Simulated assay, not measured.
Amino acid sequence: MRTKGSRSISVKSKWTKTKWLLADRALRQFVPETKLFTLSSLNDMTGRYKMVYFKPTGGSGGNGIARIVRTSSRKFRVKKDARTFETSSTGSLYGRLKRIARGRSYLLQKGIHLQTSGGRPFDFRMTMQKPEKGKWVPSVMFVKLGKPNTVVTNYHQGGKLALVGETLRRSGYSSGQIERYKMRLRTLGLQTARCFERRSPRFRELGLDVALDRTGRLWILEVNTRPNFYALKSLRDKSLFRTMVRYGKKYGRTR
């Protein structure tokens, strides 16, 4: 657990944060099945799900993430960054993933087939900030658009930021549906903020990465306790960046 000054804290471990979400009765239904990477959990997860994500417990910005796709009963295709390789057994897959991990802790997470907009997969970022004691604000929400067939949507991995309304409209959603999704994202943000606040009152900002699958269901992929502000400068509309900075000033994140 990392502290910034005496006012706000940051937790790097995705596994710790996932366990908090899973322990919350209201939120566990929104969390894709996630397990620590072991040979046993790899056998289990790849046996039950055709697509599984391999994620470092302490990574950020989409770094180190690989996508595993089961192509037949015993064969797998793995994509990491621009590289793709295939294996012919779970044992050889485990060996290759162990080499990628290099002794670091990794997670396996059920893969979510993301909704697309203009042919690009996307997920949502819902940012929560707490400028005053005990008062969380759903400050900004936006979309991260990935390149077609990429493993992650992150801006630092070639993704692009966009507005929620225009992205969902391009996917064929009506104005009413768009407003309902925005309301659901704010609700998820507030529920997550309350969940984290029960662990410590010193959290001041959270960035939820929320997937929309092709059936219309929302999933919390992970929660960042020190979300990136500056990628928002890439949007034509600078108001989202200004909003985050304004709230961030109240707890010392920005000047």
Rank of each mutant, 00 (worst) to 15 (best):
P32Y: 05
T46N: 07
L22S: 01
W20E: 01
K35L: 15
K19V: 00
K35Q: 15
D24P: 00
A26D: 12
T18S: 03
V31D: 05
S41H: 11
T34Y: 04
W20R: 02
F37L: 08
L36E: 13
R28D: 02
F37W: 05
D44I: 06
T34R: 09
T38R: 12
S41N: 15
L22M: 12
E33N: 08
E33H: 13
A26S: 12
K35D: 09
F37M: 08
L21C: 03
T34K: 10
S40V: 12
P32I: 09
K19P: 00
G47V: 11
L22I: 02
E33D: 11
D24G: 01
G47W: 12
R28G: 00
M45Q: 11
L42C: 10
Q29Y: 06
N43Y: 12
T46F: 11
N43C: 13
F37R: 10
F37P: 08
F37E: 05
R28Y: 13
L42M: 09
L36S: 13
Q29E: 14
K17F: 00
K35Y: 13
L39P: 06
L22C: 05
T46W: 10
M45S: 08
P32K: 10
K35P: 02
L21R: 03
K19E: 04
L42W: 08
K17T: 03
